[in-house]
């Protein structure tokens, strides 16, 4: 059987890595929902959830159990197949991003070198971009299949918002790529770790701000949460959903937040780099574990930033949202690209 002639150890290694990363992302997402409610509580001067377990720590499990135990309702007039496909797609697209994020350098187990990245493909950044652009389908299909006018309007809003902000996001990415000269996330992170180099945020402050705003919009977070503007659209694209299908939609938003935080940390804040420390002086495995911790710390910081913004700033109006996206962010991103190109040429010339 030549069919089975590939490296099974390699496959097993990758499968274990994927399982760990997916489970870890879901676990972090679980507690991000908890953190969100705690942060909201703190910002609104109230305790937040504090009944289930010490400090309310078991609250996410209680919420999850409640969602699973609830009655599953599929509306009679809905398109049943697509109604189920919607949340599945939203979740799948959210989780797929983690494949190209370098979580740390490599570890060595019994002389066997294991990269802590599922796939170091040479188009990593574009892959993320592609997956992000597919994320719209979960919202669109779910909203349309519900056969509800409010859901449909919300889905269309979500899709047009995502398309508009993808452009500015892509343009701000190009400036980063011009500096690092590679599309591989691993190479981008390594370039920032190199001795004497700075994190990309030093070279690209404007690009980062644009990217961050677009990430807010892509994750449907306030002030860009128009698709679920409850006071004008009842609840948004997931109005007809109940039980764990609703849970998947709500959960995929948090997974998206984690992934975009990881991408921002890798692109602009050195990924798993620990500032002011030369990792090559440490033992390999220690450096790798410290790297994971550093990346997680950066992710947690960004998640907090997301929440802080959500509970501070009110929502945009829809025309304001489009205005900001097309008339402010895109010209700004183009200017940033031009400036970066000019500086690179000047330094070379």
């Amino acid at each position: 059987m030549t069919l089975l002639a590939f490296d099974w150890a390699f496959l097993l290694e990758k499968l274990i890595l994927i399982a760990i990363i997916v489970l870890a992302s879901l676990g972090i997402a679980l507690y991000t929902t908890f953190a969100e409610r705690k942060v909201a509580g703190a910002l609104q001067d109230r305790p937040g959830p504090n009944r289930a377990g010490p400090f309310g720590l078991f609250q996410p499990f209680a919420d999850g159990l409640k969602l699973i135990m609830k009655e599953e309702i599929i509306p009679n007039t809905s398109n049943k197949g697509l109604f189920i496909l919607g949340p599945a797609l939203a979740m799948a697209a959210a989780l797929m991003t983690c494949a190209v994020i370098p979580w740390s350098s490599h570890i060595e187990v019994g002389g066997h070198k294991i990269d802590l990245q599922v796939a170091d493909i040479n188009i990593g950044v574009l892959y993320i971009f592609g997956v992000v652009s597919l994320g719209v389908y979960g919202i669109m299909i779910g909203g349309w299949a519900s056969n509800n006018k409010f859901s449909l309007m919300a889905a269309l809003r979500g899709a047009s918002q995502a398309i508009s902000y993808e452009l500015a996001m892509g343009l701000s990415l190009i400036a980063v790529l011009m500096i690092s000269g590679s599309l591989s996330l691993k190479t981008i992170v390594d370039g920032q770790m190199a001795a004497g180099g700075f994190w990309n945020i030093v070279y690209q402050p404007l690009g980062f701000i644009i990217f961050f705003i677009c990430a807010l919009a892509e994750c449907n977070r306030t002030p860009f949460d128009l698709p679920e503007a409850e006071n004008e659209l009842n609840m948004g694209y997931h109005q007809e959903y109940s039980s764990m299908k609703l849970g998947f939609y709500l959960f995929s938003e948090y997974v998206n937040m984690i992934m975009s935080s990881a991408v921002m940390a890798s692109l602009y804040f050195g990924g798993y780099d620990i500032p002011f420390l030369d990792e090559s002086t440490l033992p390999v495995n220690t450096a790798a574990i410290l790297g994971v911790v550093a990346l997680l710390a950066k992710i947690v910081f960004f998640l907090f930033l997301f929440m802080w913004i959500r509970w501070t700033i009110p929502r945009f109006r829809y025309d304001q949202l489009m205005h900001v996206g097309w008339k402010n962010l895109i010209p700004l991103a183009l200017f940033n690209m031009l400036l970066t190109g000019a500086v690179i040429l000047w330094q070379q010339g």
Binding site: I123, L126, Y127, F129, G130, S133, L134, V136, Y137, M140, W144, L152, A155, L156, A159, S160, I163, E166
Partner: peptide
């Protein structure tokens, strides 16, 4: 990946948009 970004990610979304 460009095939996916351009066709599946952008053009087909617009198709869906119009149909919906």
């Amino acid at each position: 990946i460009v095939n996916l970004i351009v066709y599946a990610g952008a053009i087909m979304v617009l198709f869906l948009f119009v149909i919906m």
